[in-house]
């Protein structure tokens, strides 16, 4: 690990102005906030992250979960994954989020990882994590080792010729289906970014993963009020039974009224370069009868844009099964 200055922030404003000195908030940032540390420390040990300054933000007052006036939820960036998963209102109104959080990582890691940190979780692509191999995300322009290499676990949606790295988060998939708002405070004040706009596709700049700018601090995530009558579910498929990233996952929020689907939000994990919202699937569900045929049609539509690599073609079938089963489960 490279040497760095360690400091502790007790005031968001000071933390933001210190971090604003960084040339980027993306790959290569000189200043990093540390909260749970579960991604940052991991990558610093691998020399993938090499900040010269690490600012401990754990003491900032951002660890509360509050109800919003419209019946939604405002989640502090420092709320730990385990606390959020077990929050009574999350369990009641946003089951998909609780389930997604509990399917991720381990009990220990969920006690550490925060809401804000999980939004910024980095890919598990083995070539991104190994500084001896070319990687456009880590070293722009160096090439993608994964396309010709070990790509079984990598993305089939949202890829480019420069990067096929998967977004590994479970939480982000649920937040995407819930249409969460990310609240960011930066040098120019606060802004609210819909989660669908928060993550960037790799394109020809895979080193840029989010809209985060130097100095930006995620302070909260806002969940809109639950859709009336909607039920939600998260299903994660992987090789072993626990403590592993998804090969494919699905977060679904569905409302059925008068025998027809009146509200459908679909997101998938383990298959996309970002948490993957599927408007194709939502369109295929909207107004239809909630039956196996509808679900299978939606699943096919969701994976229609997929571009598999040499080893991960199976993810098309697997993700379709995952989505179909998640939909069957949520309406059962």
């Amino acid at each position: 690990m490279e040497p760095f200055v360690f400091s502790r922030a007790t005031d968001p404003g000071k933390a933001i102005s210190a971090a604003a000195k960084s040339s980027t908030a993306q790959q290569g940032a000189e200043v990093r906030f540390v909260a749970g540390g579960t991604t940052l420390l991991d990558l610093m040990k691998l020399n993938v992250e090499r900040p010269t300054q690490v600012i401990d933000i754990n003491h900032l007052p951002l660890a509360d979960v509050e109800r919003t006036s419209d019946g939604g939820l405002k989640i502090g960036a420092l709320v730990r994954n385990s606390d959020l998963a077990h929050h009574p209102q999350v369990q009641r109104d946003y089951a998909v989020l609780s389930q997604a959080l509990l399917s991720g990582a381990s009990g220990q890691l969920r006690n550490m990882a925060t809401t804000g940190g999980n939004l910024l979780q980095r890919t598990r692509c083995v070539y991104f994590r190994d500084t001896n191999m070319p990687c456009n995300k880590r070293e722009p322009g160096s090439g993608c080792s994964a396309i010709e290499g070990f790509n079984r676990t990598l993305a089939i949606l949202g890829t480019s010729e420069h990067c096929i790295a998967t977004n590994p988060s479970d939480m982000n998939v649920a937040l995407t289906a819930l249409e969460a708002i990310v609240v960011i405070r930066g040098t120019a004040g606060e802004r609210r970014v819909p989660i669908g706009e928060f993550f960037l596709l790799p394109g020809d700049t895979p080193q840029r993963e989010t809209v985060m700018m130097p100095g930006d601090l995620i302070t909260h995530v806002i969940l809109p009020p639950p859709h009336p009558g909607a039920r939600s579910h998260y299903l994660k498929l992987r090789d072993r039974a626990s403590y592993e990233f998804a090969l494919a996952s699905a977060a679904v929020v569905i409302a059925v009224e008068g025998g027809k689907i009146t509200h459908a939000r679909v997101a998938m994990g383990g298959v996309g370069t970002k948490p993957w919202r599927s408007p194709e699937a939502e369109q295929a569900l909207q107004g239809q009868l909630p039956n196996e045929h509808t679900f299978a049609t939606a699943a096919v539509a969701a994976l229609h844009p997929a571009k598999p690599q040499s080893q991960n073609g199976f993810k098309v079938d697997l993700a379709q099964r995952c989505l179909t089963h998640a939909l069957s489960t949520v309406v059962a």
Partner: peptide, 15 residues
């Protein structure tokens, strides 16, 4: 390439 315990997966309690 999978020289770590997240990518070289072994049996967990749950398995």
């Amino acid at each position: 390439v999978n020289s770590n315990l997240a990518d070289y997966i072994m049996t967990t309690h749950a398995d």
